[in-house]
């Protein structure tokens, strides 16, 4: 089955059997791990300062493990209770009593049930595309997406980032998702890894609050200042010309005497055999009869 989203609700697809299958497949684990590592890289978390990360669509907790190894505390939500049960068993089975994760049963399409400005970051692996499908007449994908993103906007701390990896079925879906995120106030866009491969292609929606990319400070301080200075002069030059119409530029005649002399000089420096410069050089011929 290529797209489980078309079969119905996520909690129906990821039933007990499917959840166990998912969790025991080494291929699935490998892929999910790789994606999570890339997503965490895009999050740009400071590993020396542990963060509280929200994991949306945490499934059996594969993405949480990556966050945990980096010392972050995470809270996972998933719409499939069976997946969460597997995640819980995982915690107890492997005797990893030291866990920084916590789980919650929730549907992201109904808005995130948290206080404002709670999380330092948000991650979501292969879950967002589920929001593009409605499973009942009452569900409106556009509404659910807006509800999700606007609640995400409030629960994230200012300065936080969200990286959401998803599998869009069509290009329109990717546009719909990123458009909705921008509408609620987020800055950012979609990062596509392996764009040439149909199978390995991955979409990451990277969201943040900063509207402009601030230049890095550090050793390059002086160079940066120079650049800033240039920016100012460019701006002024543009400003002073505002309203005034520039005179049309005079067309330079091609093959003028200077041009030919310059050309001949250039040929001479290359060691080519060039006719000497005389009073006849670059003179026009007499018109024919």
């Amino acid at each position: 089955m290529s797209r489980p989203e078309l079969t119905g609700h996520a909690s129906l697809f990821y039933n007990e059997k499917e959840a166990r299958k998912y969790d025991s497949s080494s291929r699935m684990i490998g892929v999910q791990r790789e994606i999570t590592e890339r997503a965490v890289e895009l999050l740009r978390l400071d590993d020396s300062k542990p963060s509280l990360v929200l994991d949306i669509g945490c499934g059996s907790g594969l993405s949480g493990q990556v966050l945990e190894e980096r010392g972050h505390v995470w809270l996972g939500c998933d719409v499939s209770r069976d997946m969460l049960t597997v995640a819980k068993e995982h915690e107890e089975d492997t005797k990893v009593l030291q866990s920084t994760g916590d789980l919650m049963h929730h549907d992201m399409g109904s808005g995130l049930p948290f206080r404002p400005a709670t999380f330092d970051a948000c991650i979501s692996i292969s879950a967002l595309q589920w929001l593009c499908y409605s499973n009942s007449a009452a569900q409106n994908p556009r509404k659910r997406l807006t509800r999700f993103f606007s609640s995400l906007y409030t629960v994230l701390k200012r300065g936080g980032r969200a990286v959401l990896q998803f599998y869009p079925e069509t290009a329109e879906q990717a546009v719909l998702i990123s458009e909705t995120a921008t509408k609620v106030g987020f800055a950012g866009g979609v990062v596509v890894d392996y764009p040439n491969s149909a199978k390995a292609k991955k979409h990451y929606l990277v969201l943040s609050f900063d509207r402009s990319l601030a230049p890095r400070r550090g050793a390059l301080g002086t160079a940066e200042q120079d650049q800033k200075q240039q920016h100012v002069t460019v701006g002024e030059a543009l400003g002073s010309n505002k309203g005034k119409k520039q005179p049309p530029r005079k067309k330079k005649g091609i093959k003028t005497k200077e041009w030919i002399l310059h050309k001949k000089d250039a040929q001479r420096t290359k060691g080519k055999d060039v006719r000497p410069d005389t009073k006849y050089t670059a003179r026009r011929r007499r018109g024919k009869f």
């Binding site: 919650m104 049963h105 929730h106 109904s110």
Partner: peptide
């Protein structure tokens, strides 16, 4: 239940959003 809170809401109970 089993340490997992169930916060699932019905569609009609959800917060209304403008779009």
């Amino acid at each position: 239940r089993d340490g997992i809170p169930n916060m699932v809401l019905e569609e009609e109970d959800c917060e209304h959003v403008r779009y």
